[in-house]
Amino acid sequence: MIDTQNLILRAENVSKKYHSGGVDVKALDDITIDIKAGEFIMITGRNGSGKFVEGNKTTHLPEKLKMELRLSQLGYIFQEYALIAELTAIENVMLPAMMLESSKVAKSKALKMLSKMNLQNKVKRLPSQLSGGEQQKVAIARALINEPTIIFADEPTANLDSIASKEVLEIFKSLNEHDNITIIMITHEPEELVYASRIIQLSDGKLV
């Protein structure tokens, strides 16, 4: 019997194999993970242990939630920032909001988000004119603009120096604690695990 109280996401009996170097590798081997609202989860493990697949396959939602959870309620943050090169910081941030609101409203929300990230003076810069940490903060602002319930972050600090990494993690912590956003983050860095409310360690496709 599944306890669905506060359950926001469930990955149930998930298996995934991939083929690498002529060998079948079990990325996920029949694992089940429940994620509750408001958790700050870090998924960790060695390369090839299935963290990335896990981060992107947690799609088994309780029926009730399935109806409520829309794409706009999910925010994605990628290791490589994934900003649109031709758009300025504010244009990148306002883009998801433009799906739902007028461009005027989207712009004002984007400005607010960028101010929250202390980037109010760099709104008109293109990604190529921003540092790695600044680009990641723009990506976070973009992920937040539609007020998501869950944020998926795939090694968001992998390309950042220690100062910028700490800034990003503090932002996640604040979002989790003050805005009650559920955060699912994949990381390689053991020192980052202190920010998590729960750690999921994978090894050879199994939960450890």
């Binding site: 794409l71 706009s72 999910l74 994605y76 990628f78 994934a82 900003l83 649109i84 090169a85 883009l95 998801p96 799906m99 973009r142 992920a143 539609n146």
Partner: peptide, 16 residues
């Protein structure tokens, strides 16, 4: 291709 993937990931519908 990468930008198209990003657009989809941030919630932009394919028809857009």
């Amino acid at each position: 291709r990468k930008e198209i993937g990003i657009l989809r990931a941030i919630g932009i519908r394919p028809y857009i």
